[in-house]
Simulated scan of single mutants.
Amino acid sequence: MAKLGFLMCMPSPLPPHQNRPPSNSDNTFCLTRRQSFIFTSSLLSSFLLMRQNPNLSSFPSAIAQELDELDQDETRAVKIFQETSSCVVFIKDLELTKTTKSTSEVGLAEEENAKVEGTGSGFVWDKFGHIVTNYHVVSKLATDRSGLQRCKVSLVDSAGNNFTREGILIGFDPDYDLAVLKVDAVGNELNPATIGTSHELQVGQSCFAIGNPYGFENTLTTGVISGLGREIPSPNGRAIRGAIQTDAAINAGNSGGPLIDSYGHVIGVNTATFTRKGSGISSGVNFAIPIDTAVRIVPYLIVYGTPYTDRY
């Protein structure tokens, strides 16, 4: 039995960072297993065809063309990740276990006195420090009455360096599972996402999801647009209409991260997945809020803190 489960921020051990520098020789001279398998299969098939038809002499170029096409697909995925991953942020939901100062003075320096309650993703909206994510990623911060909830945002600057800031919640809309954080970083420190459109998407288009599933930072998954115009429940139980369905893997910790098209444009905000009851594992039926919806709502959240409908 399957159910729709929101990818809530959930406690998960964070993996150690691996800083192995990329090797040009690894990228240039190593065939992937898939390429090797296809090359071998194609070579065998072509040899058998040659035995049956000695006049057939163009098979080497056919094999080369097939491998070139695979290389182009892989090169495109690598390029998209390199150009867009710096706009994706890692969000940690913290709860202070004790305070030695007034709550207004407690910041990220007190993280040793905090426990990580969950992780999520988001992306840089603009150079003013606004971060877009899901409401359910920061719902504890939004409903906090104790003053002990904090939000830690890890970003990458234009030089490729990691840095961390406290995220201040400035607006949220549970109806569409969207929220906006503000970090104290501007200008060259930030790499805003390139915002695309979602109203012209077609089923079958390639798409890419970047996020932090289970705390593994900067994870890329690939797939296609599996369906359009889906209806999924929001955190408050209301229907979110027009959702994008994709088979790109989305798991706990991906919430709030961007769904990206082949041009590197953000076309959706990853938000939910169908999971088998009790497993917590994505079934390949995943959903994103259309970016057109975010473009309509986020500016109101930045200016007013609430969606347009809540102001009247």
Rank of each mutant, 00 (worst) to 15 (best):
I289M: 05
N113K: 14
T75N: 08
A239M: 05
T40C: 15
D68V: 12
P11M: 04
F128N: 12
A77I: 07
V137E: 04
L44H: 03
E200N: 15
S234R: 05
T133E: 02
R311N: 08
R34Q: 10
R165F: 00
N254Q: 12
G211W: 03
Y214P: 01
N134G: 06
A193D: 03
G253F: 06
K101E: 15
T100E: 15
A252V: 06
G122R: 01
H17V: 11
D71R: 15
E95F: 13
A185S: 11
A252M: 13
V137D: 04
H199P: 03
G305A: 07
G160D: 10
V224W: 02
T32K: 03
A159I: 00
D26H: 11
G229T: 03
G227T: 05
T28S: 07
T275F: 00
P15T: 07
I267L: 06
E112I: 10
A62M: 02
A109M: 14
L44E: 03
A114E: 00
D247T: 00
A142H: 09
G237K: 08
Y176E: 08
M8D: 13
V269K: 00
N55T: 09
V116C: 02
R51V: 14
I38R: 12
E217A: 11
G196Q: 01
L301G: 00
L190S: 03
A179S: 12
V106R: 07
H199W: 09
V153A: 10
G107M: 08
F29L: 10
I38K: 08
R241L: 12
F59C: 04
S234F: 00
R241E: 14
P213A: 08
F90E: 04
E217P: 00
K277F: 07
G211N: 03
L7T: 07
